[in-house]
Write a protein that binds this DNA or RNA. Sequence first.
DNA 1: CTCGATCCCTGGACGC
DNA 2: TGCGTCCAGGGATCGA
Length: 329
Amino acid sequence: MPELPEVETVARGLQGSIAGRRILSVTLRKTDFIDDPVAIERELPGRQIARVERFGKFILLQLASKNDTLGVAVEGTRAGNGITQPEALAEALLVHLGMTGNLSPHHAEQPLAKHTHVTFVLDDGRELRYIDPRRFGRMAYLAGETLAAELLRFGAEPLLVSAEEFARRVRSSRARIKALLLDQRVLRGVGNIYADESLWSARIHPARVGASLKPAEAGNLLRALQKILRKAIQMRGSSISDFVDVDGLQGDYQQRHKVYGREGEKCFRCCAKVQRILVAGRSSHFCPVCQRAPNSGSRAASLRKRALSGVRVAKKKAKRKMRLRTSKG
DNA sequence: CTCGATCCCTGGACGC
DNA sequence: TGCGTCCAGGGATCGA
């Protein structure tokens, strides 16, 4: 299940193996996961892949500008509004691997694997193939403002976001921290595995409300998340069911999982049994001892809280009254 | 705003 | 062996 480290692994692999190659032709088979199949057939043939990068859980195949690739002075700037915006990222093919997507180069003579939905013939005799049994992935050719608008929908990059920014995003929401970590509008790239792993590391229960996190807790969580993501990238991601990189190699980070997929097994810190519950509709693995359950979730607790704060307010009012009376008298 | 439910899809696990 | 059933999960969408 490709999340940030897996997608990063694939993007780096592709950057090394297909950057600079030109796409000669495109063959589409199943297209129900493609935003606009016709645009892909129209725009990609003849184009050079300038660079491959990760954006959240997306692989971005950045296309060299037509001017560069053709080496011909095509018509001048198209900026009709007079604003010249030398957009670094003007055109790209976005690929989301979903749950089971695989994007990798193959020798042309290699038989097509089952569920090969897209083939890009490259100028060196190889083919870049997209294989995705479940078709939970997504593919889209986007350019200009459409591309910019699409990328703007996503939140901060987990490896670059500052502690302040992360704390602000997380602590300004009443949603549960697990849901916030998974919400691509908050952070881009975190999925179920790394959300659970970082919450365990920071000893934060997945059902905690974001706004209930103390600044220090938010800081610990981001540190844990970044450390885990970096290590996972170093180990080329986690291979749970079928993730492999562009060379067909599995990742190794699943060997480091502390809670994910370990329901019923002992917590590595305290030996309590790892539990799995549903939070935000996703299975969430955690240690019930290390990660204390929020008590603000229960009705009884919230009533208790309200009663307490009510008492506090009443006391303050009484104090103020008293002060007024004494100052007068 | 936040939630849960539902759908998409297939392969793998499991029960009989 | 061969069914049927259930489940996983990222994301979109919809109604509460």
